[in-house]
């Protein structure tokens, strides 16, 4: 079961997560340990990277119109920033005493905090990206909802002209997202629903066409309407399923299990 739910987050955090757990294990196995080397240079490198992340993070928060991102990102940035101060403390303490126990604790707490804070930050950013895709999906749902007012061939032409680019955008976004996920079950669910939507699109257009013809001829109107509405419902259900799966993380499923 993957720990990180996207390949991007995994590629960024997995190596540092491994290093941090190794340090924790070593610390637990050898409480007093060897003398620590001077960590001033690597700690300064971390601090510089943290300062840059904080700057970029607040720029992102200020330029975004996503209220949830604006709310979620600052605590993660604070966590990272505070953790980097623990590392600076650890480095100072170790310079005075390379065997310092409190310094080792601060080192572990600081590196763990940076890992957790960066993870929270990446998660907040990723969720914001998912909300963008969800908005595109909801746009398609809005178009599907107006199917019932399409009762002339001219309207159908306009309907298809408007629906096609939104549908293409949704397909492209969901397809790209599917490739990003580490959880195979979620990937399969997205692919299956997307395939259904693709297959149902020509069925919908043909259904609307049959409905328009039936309305003009006055024959088989109820059946044509039922068929059209059934296809709209099926497509909407699949898009709702896509939205649901997009918002899932591996953690959700473990919690559910």
């Amino acid at each position: 079961m993957p720990v990180f739910h996207t390949k991007t987050i995994e590629s960024i955090l997995e190596p540092v997560a491994q290093q941090v757990s190794r340090l924790v294990i070593l610390h637990e196995e050898a409480e007093d340990g060897n003398a620590m080397p001077d960590l001033a240079v690597p700690v300064r490198a971390v601090k510089a990277a943290v300062d840059n992340l904080v700057r970029v993070g607040y720029e992102t928060v200020n330029s975004s119109d996503d209220q949830i991102l604006k709310q979620d990102m600052p605590p993660a940035l604070t966590r990272v920033e505070e953790s980097s101060l623990l590392l600076l403390d650890a480095s100072d303490l170790l310079r005075a005493d390379p065997y310092s126990g409190p310094a080792r604790k601060k080192l572990i707490e600081g590196s763990r905090g940076i890992l957790q804070g960066t993870s929270a930050l990446l998660l907040a950013f990723d969720e914001s990206e998912v909300r963008k895709i969800v908005r595109v999906c909801k746009n398609v749902l809005e178009y599907l909802a107006i199917t019932e007012v399409v009762d002339r061939m001219e309207d159908l032409v306009t309907f298809v002209k408007n629906l096609s680019p939104v549908l293409t955008r949704m397909t492209k976004n969901v397809d790209a997202r599917e490739k990003e996920l580490t959880h195979q079950v979620h990937r399969d669910m997205l692919l299956r629903s997307l395939e259904q939507v693709k297959n149902l699109t020509p069925v919908l257009i043909s259904g609307i066409k049959i409905f328009i013809t039936a309305k003009q001829s006055g024959q088989g109107l109820v059946e044509a309407q039922n068929n059209r509405d059934y296809t709209v419902r099926k497509m909407s259900d699949e898009i709702h399923e896509i939205i649901r799966v997009l918002q899932l993380t591996t953690y959700d499923e473990e919690e559910w299990d």
């Binding site: 960024i12 340090l23 070593l26 060897n34 080397p37 700690v43 971390v46 510089a48 992340l53 970029v56």
Partner: peptide, 29 residues
């Protein structure tokens, strides 16, 4: 994109720091 790059830098710098600290400890274990 900038966020991802900045996060990559932090992760790399932290991993390097922790690796240096671990290396000193490992000699004892």
């Amino acid at each position: 994109e900038q966020i991802l790059e900045a996060a990559k830098s932090i992760a790399a710098a932290t991993a390097a720091l922790v690796k240096t600290a671990s290396a000193a400890q490992r000699e004892l274990v």
